[in-house]
């Protein structure tokens, strides 16, 4: 009896193990198939960007690996378009906007979260209402303002100013301030700190993760923004990456190798940026949904 039981258990667990192994194999197969769907287009673009003039773009069956790999396509793109400038412009616009936006929205979020004052509800709902207004709606008047009033047409300032405050960040940060215990603020008040000191010395360090989230969101949105920048920027040295990339598509319309090289050059850095900051992205998403 004893013997029979002890011999049965390994048999069962062995079957379970092969069962699980099989399940895992199927599972990984599904994951790989989806991954191919998500990444293969980029992989094909990348391989195309390395193809020399003798490598076929189109053939049956498709030739994926370049036989005569070359960096000439990258060179021809770089010769005709200032990709480096696109990057610098995008980084500049993204960094300046993010820094200013997070400061301005964090300032606005503090009284909305922690102070009582006349008009608080009105201001809160006013800002809330702007969340549903599509930005594209404002582009015609904003264009007129840019040309006639601010005179910043074809400058990077035109991209920065309209994005100095976003309702989304005000709400995200208001939520963060609300979760800070009042005792902390009261203690600082008793010590005689003014509100700006409290904001900077007490609250900002506590809500740093939310600031990082708001900052990354803003940066990525600015980095990918296309329609407004395409209306504002028309000389090549002023363009941001998406605007430059669209220009590249127009210039090299039938030269797939060069377009592929342009896409490769612009996609890889943002992928690295994401991989490094992945943790904050995920935390930000959770926070945004709860808030």
């Amino acid at each position: 009896m004893e013997l029979a039981r002890s011999s049965r258990i390994p048999a069962v667990s062995a079957r379970r193990r092969t069962d699980r192994l099989f399940k895992n194999a199927v599972f990984y197969l599904v994951l790989v198939v989806i991954a191919m769907g998500m990444v293969f287009p980029f992989l094909w673009i990348f391989l195309t960007s390395l193809k020399g003039p003798t490598d076929a773009i189109f053939s049956v069956p498709p030739q994926l690996i370049p036989y005569a790999p070359t960096l000439d396509n990258f060179k021809s793109v770089l010769d005709q378009l200032p990709i480096g400038n696109f990057f610098l412009n995008s980084i500049f616009v993204g960094a300046v906007t993010t820094l200013c936006n997070v400061t301005i929205t964090a300032l606005a979020a503090y009284p909305l979260a922690k102070m009582k004052f006349a008009g608080r509800e009105t201001i809160f709902y006013l800002l809330l209402a702007t969340l549903v207004v599509p930005a594209q709606l404002t582009y015609i008047p904003s264009f007129v303002l840019a040309v006639n009033f601010f005179h910043y047409y074809n400058t990077l300032a035109a991209l920065i100013f309209p994005n100095l405050s976003t309702a989304f960040n005000v709400f995200l940060l208001r939520q963060a301030f609300r979760s800070v215990p009042n005792d902390l603020i009261d203690a600082a008040r008793i010590d005689g700190a003014n509100e700006l000191r409290i904001w900077w010395d007490v609250l900002i360090p506590v809500i740093r993760p939310s600031l990082a989230t708001a900052g990354i969101f803003t940066f990525v949105n600015m980095w990918n923004d296309f329609l407004w920048p395409s209306l504002m920027l028309h000389t090549r040295d002023r363009m941001t990456l998406p605007v430059g990339l669209a220009a590249l598509q127009g210039m090299f319309s039938s030269d797939m190798r060069s377009i592929a090289a342009g896409v490769t050059m612009t996609v890889i850095p943002i992928l690295i940026f994401f991989m490094v900051l992945q943790k904050y992205f995920v935390r930000g998403l959770t926070g945004a949904v709860k808030g």
Binding site: A35, N224, L241
Partner: peptide, 15 residues
Amino acid sequence: FRALYYVPAVSGSIA
């Protein structure tokens, strides 16, 4: 795999 699935989402609409 999570990171790979995220690749299109971070590449930007124009790219």
